[in-house]
């Protein structure tokens, strides 16, 4: 189990709250599981003690320094306890605490539990309160260096960028990640996010992005991330998937003998689009007959796992034959 720090026998120097003089005035509240507990966890003595006192504090709604310290012990034992985090924020507000210290604490917690919802949310609330996101790009870059696809880190980064207008160097950052791993789908998604939020999809942006992604597809023609990005971009152009420069690229790739399932699938969808919306540029690669042949190739050779799907798409194509 990730995040367990309650090994029995650990913490020789630990003093139970029940043995602390400064806590003698507070009545601990045991957990009320009722007469017939189910999914009963064999808590360590330390865990039980800390949470008995946390419940005690919660009951009398004590918003104090010692309660703040107690919540720290509690979230370290279980960082997933959203009640403790929420209560901790109440105390921080009430005591008007210096949040810099709290920022350091939550950064530590993020490093220790990078896939935990609560630690990242806590960070976001603190940054909002401080109205200062100057450390967020660095923090998320550090976490993404450890796991380039950490969903929480990307969420936090996007939130900070959007809220505090930190778009300036983001494309460079993404470029670096894509150079490290061209298959990093999170980085591709971030690229789309940045374009969408900054230049949007003006014709010259579309051209630039298409050129960029085609150069990446050339490097790895079976990389679904870049193909998906291409689809995302061309949908903003008037000719959609049938954009002539893209079809020419596909044509060339296909004629060179490439049979990437992503390529064939793109051509099938472009043909379907052509059948539905009419012709942009007459191209035999986009005829229904050719698309049916490609579906067949996909179903029987290049994407056998998805045979049922390709048969369905064949059916959709056939509707347009009459």
């Amino acid at each position: 189990m990730e995040g367990s720090s309650s090994e029995e026998g650990e913490d020789v120097n630990w003093t139970f709250y029940r043995d602390r003089e400064e806590w003698a005035d507070l009545k601990p509240v045991p957990q009320d599981d009722g007469p017939h507990p189910v999914v009963a966890i064999a808590y360590s003595e330390k865990f039980r003690d800390v949470f008995d006192y946390f419940r005690g504090v919660l009951k009398v709604h004590e918003l104090s320094e010692r309660a703040l310290d107690l919540t720290r012990d509690a979230v370290e034992l279980n960082p997933g306890n959203y009640t403790v985090w929420q209560y901790r924020r109440q105390i921080l507000k009430h005591l008007d605490k210096d949040l810099k210290e709290e920022m350091a604490f939550v950064a530590e917690m993020i490093s220790a539990f990078p896939k935990n919802y609560q630690v990242w949310h806590h960070r976001q609330v603190l940054v909002s309160w401080l109205n200062d996101a100057s450390d967020e790009l660095q923090l998320t870059a550090k976490m993404l260096a450890l796991d380039a696809k950490n969903y929480h880190a990307w969420q936090h980064r996007q939130w900070a960028i959007r809220t505090f207008n930190l778009f300036q160097n983001e494309l460079e950052f993404i470029e670096k990640l894509l150079n490290d791993d061209i298959r990093n789908n999170s980085a591709w998604n971030q690229r789309y996010f940045v374009i969408n939020q900054t230049t949007e999809f003006a014709p010259e942006v579309i051209e630039k992005e298409i050129a960029y992604v085609l150069s990446k597809i050339k490097i790895a023609t079976k990389n679904e991330s870049s193909w998906n990005y291409l689809r995302g971009i061309v949908l903003h152009s008037e000719s959609g998937l049938r954009k002539p420069s893209v079809i020419d690229f596909c044509d060339e790739l296909y004629n060179s003998g490439n049979r990437s399932a992503c390529l064939l699938s793109y051509l099938v969808d472009a043909a379907l689009e052509q059948a539905e919306y009419g012709v942009v540029k007459e191209n035999s690669l986009l005829s229904i007959d050719k698309a049916l042949e490609l579906c067949d190739n996909l179903a029987n050779e290049f994407d056998v796992c998805r045979r049922g799907y390709w048969n369905y798409i064949s059916g959709c194509l056939r509707v347009h034959m009459n």
Binding site: S4, I41, A42, S44, L77, N78
Partner: peptide, 17 residues
Amino acid sequence: HSLCYLPHNFACLDASR
């Protein structure tokens, strides 16, 4: 077995019972 008893390392799921 899990319905009645969970070992101490399940403490990280104490907010997911």
